[in-house]
Design a protein around this nucleic acid. Structure first.
Lengths: 207, 207
DNA sequence: CAATACCAAGCAAGCGCTTGGTTTGTAAAC
DNA sequence: GTTTACAAACCAAGCGCTTGCTTGGTATTG
């Protein structure tokens, strides 16, 4: 199952918005603005201007500004859970599953959905506590993918550290790439960056 | 040279504010508030109330709110550069130097100066661009400590990945601990967490 | 008696959001 | 194939509130 097929399925199930529709376009622009300027510094007037409507008209689609932030996060997490699930299923061994997860997360963070993923990481505090709980529930689903894979490696003796700790370290390390990784300069590709991440943990490429 | 000696030297050189003075107390409270609520959500009235003065009186000590943010960052980076320098100097081998750096950064992030370090990481965007340049200059000094150490390990064949990439991965991973590491629960000490970090990279403890 | 530290009051600007009314898309009714 | 009906999408205006910061004056300190 390829990536665009996964996206289409989610759209037809109403789990993520069609990026060509009004709602989807707004969420895309919102993600970009929230990442670039931060949620607090982005005004509803900025958001409205980005999609060419008046600020008041936003509230026809969303009840509050915070609902926009939550929608960005929820839809992003849904899409990426599906992508990661597919990546894991396609890989045969534990080490290859880990590589697939690292690669998928790097792509989430630095690719198409990068803006939204950055928002998920850096604008967490701006979500109301009640909304945080809802999003956390979704996040647990895909955290399990990581933990199962890391647990297998641990049992195979190929990982020295605690899977829980490693997952959290990787969350930080991979998310942080959004602040410095620029594929257009330096010649480091996403595959190259994936190899470097694996190498950092002592996994030689192709082994 | 122990930690409180280092702090005292910096204070007498006017490089960091005495935490008992008016300015130092404000910066400490500011760091806490900025970490807890974010820079934008923290008002000058919040800051003033935290040290028991009127909001207008803040501007007797600082010209703008942003100047407070910058001061938090600059003083934190100065202190931690000095602490890291001491930690590296005290360790004999490359691996022990790396362990000392990891340990020192974990302590910066999760210990006394943790609030300010979290601000340095997560409130970066709220700094005006001009201020960012000033702080970046200071940061380069202590980044060099890391790169020199990682470069040595690389040449010894004990590190498979590129030092630049590893340092950035570690920046993310270690900073991120501030969002989940709670020494009071779970029984994982800072030393334990340091061991886990080293183990993740394939360095067994005490080797 | 000067400098430093502070207070009380408030201003101008910007914020999220509301309101009442108009346009646009769609599809059944005639 | 034009008319009617109606909801969805949007605009223009602005309200009530909060924001960072200023001002003019008063204690406090060496």
């Amino acid at each position: 199952m390829n990536q665009s097929k996964i996206l289409k399925d989610l759209i037809s199930d109403n789990l993520v918005s069609d990026p060509n529709g009004a709602r989807g376009r707004l969420l895309k622009e919102a993600a970009r603005l929230f990442r670039d300027k931060g949620y607090e510094r982005t005004t509803v007037r900025d958001l409205a201007a980005a999609v060419g409507i008046q600020s008041g008209s936003l509230f026809h689609h969303f009840r509050t500004k915070e609902e926009i932030l939550k929608a960005v996060m929820v839809e992003t997490i849904r899409l990426n859970t599906a992508l990661m699930q597919a990546a894991v299923d396609a890989a045969p061994t534990s080490q290859e599953k880990l590589r697939a997860l690292v690669r998928a997360e790097l792509e989430s963070v630095n690719g198409q959905t990068g803006e939204a993923m950055a928002v998920l990481v850096f604008e967490w505090r701006s979500l109301a506590e009640e909304s945080q709980a809802d999003v956390l529930e979704l996040r647990d689903i895909y955290e399990k993918l990581w933990l199962d894979t890391l647990e297998s490696l641990r049992q195979e003796g190929r990982l020295l550290a605690d899977p829980f700790v490693v997952r959290r370290m990787l969350t930080g390390a991979l998310s942080w790439t959004v602040t410095w990784y620029r594929p257009e300069r330096g010649g480091l590709t996403l595959d190259g960056l994936t190899d470097q991440t694996m190498a950092m943990m002592g996994f030689a490429p192709g082994a």
